[in-house]
Design a protein around this nucleic acid. Sequence first.
RNA 1: CUGGCCGUGGCGCAGCUUGGUAGCGCACCGCGUUUGGGACGCGGGGGCCGUGGGUUCAAAUCCCACCGGCCAGACCA
Length: 524
Amino acid sequence: MSIRPGSGSAAPAATPRSGSTPQRTSRAKPAGTSLGYRTFAFGGWGSDALTSPAMAKAPVLTPQATDFPRWYQDVLNKAELADNGPVRGTMVIRPYGYGLWERMVAEVDARIKDAGAENAYFPLFIPESYLTREAEHVEGFSPELAVVTHAGGKELEEPVVVRPTSETVIGEFMAKWIQSHRDLPLLLNQWANVVRWEMRTRIFLRTSEFLWQEGHTAHATEEDAREYALKIHLDVYRDFMVNVLAVPVWVGRKTKQERFAGATNTLACEAMMRDGKALQMGTSHELGQNFARAFDITYQDAAGAQQMAWTTSWGVSTRMMGGLIMCHGDDAGLRVPPRLASVQVVVLVIRDEDGAGEAAARLVDELKAAGVRARLDARTDTSFGRRATDWELKGVPVRIEVGPRDLANGEVTVVRRDDGTKAQAAVAGVAATVPGLLEEIQAGLLAEATASRDARTETVSTIDEAREVAQAGFARIPWRVLGEAGEAELAKDAVTVRCLQLPDGSVPRAEDDPDVVALVARSY
RNA sequence: CUGGCCGUGGCGCAGCUUGGUAGCGCACCGCGUUUGGGACGCGGGGGCCGUGGGUUCAAAUCCCACCGGCCAGACCA
């Protein structure tokens, strides 16, 4: 088959986004640990090691402060997360990267099910005619559609598009399945890949094909639909991002300009990356009756009258991988929060002498028995330093080093990836202390990211100040000061309204609430 | 489609100005010594120099065309 990039209806004039701006670096983190370990400093990846006059070894990664995009690329390669695919804009997710994604899927999926939705699967190919049924939806997506025009050696009578999202097909089937108010709400979700032909791509952040979860629901009333979209947004997305990814997010509603094509309201979770740019990590949409009208999703109410349903859709994607990397990563590599980590603890054999190998294997068993995702690294044909560096690049939260020297004292060395501290601990009881240590690291990463985000969030009262502050973080500005005119003006400098919220950080019911505050920033 | 830059082993580059044996770092393979912070020594393997044409005794190098990529003007989970 052959595929052509989307054509048809012209793309609407869009907000200009322009290029790069100077980087900002992140601050130092507090040190210290608890759990009663003896701790001591070491010259691992600190700046001391790099600035020592002797002969500073080249850094493992391009430092963030030097070139953040390059640092990001280096992490993808060296932590073995992903590669570019052969077709421009596509990506290959490598086993370690996919392991992290699988953990995200597991955690998000469980929350979606708790919210009452069920998984299903709809086709990759969608009749082109479906897309055209909702005016704004086509207009929004047509420039980035991949369309199959030939298959089986022949030109197709009706081209099929590769799904950019599935509102349309799912709408078609909702119409078929929903007859009565007793069929509502209908709460569906699917895990799938989608294709959007993007101009500028970056692995995980924006790729032509990506993996995601898309939820689609139909409700009897607007109120019910609105509540469900909000529930997903807070109880599934925000909860997962804050409590598992340890990424603090601002929640709010999108301006008309930034809204999803075909939605009446879009809610977003916005996070702050270490270079001062914002990242939209997830969205939840109220679709009003737009799709219900286009696909004839109607039901008979209790009184016997035909009514039109209200629908929602919501999604999070592999973009969260990019957010994870850019929110927590440092100059030594990735830092994976323990609750997410596919490998929470790596037990590393320094030298397999005096029973170190067996002691390490035993420790891994004990850790697994204690419910820890532990892994043994006994590759003693590779030097210790190399292996330590490799696991730091991969961001494994805790490394336990088992070597003959410590073992002679009945001890092992426990190293935290978050702050780099090393501590000695008795082999005997160490496994039991690990779950607590992991939780401490989890909390520490969230606290650090929150402090960093808050340090980059500033309240301003003029558009000029907003533009300035947005060069390195979020500016909060009253929406009545900014308005659509101010929004358009900031767009010239690649600054956009990430979301609108109430002063207490909650989601406003309406855009025109007089107290609404706009959070503006540069973004990915 | 307009402007600027670039195509040389897997990756990053030098070589081109002034044509004459295709090189370096990393990675890879073998052997040995190593292993408490990215090991070292010795020995190896691997390149249609983006493609096509031209100039020349001779082209990675000079000339022309084309192709591909990156950055700047047009999107979003």
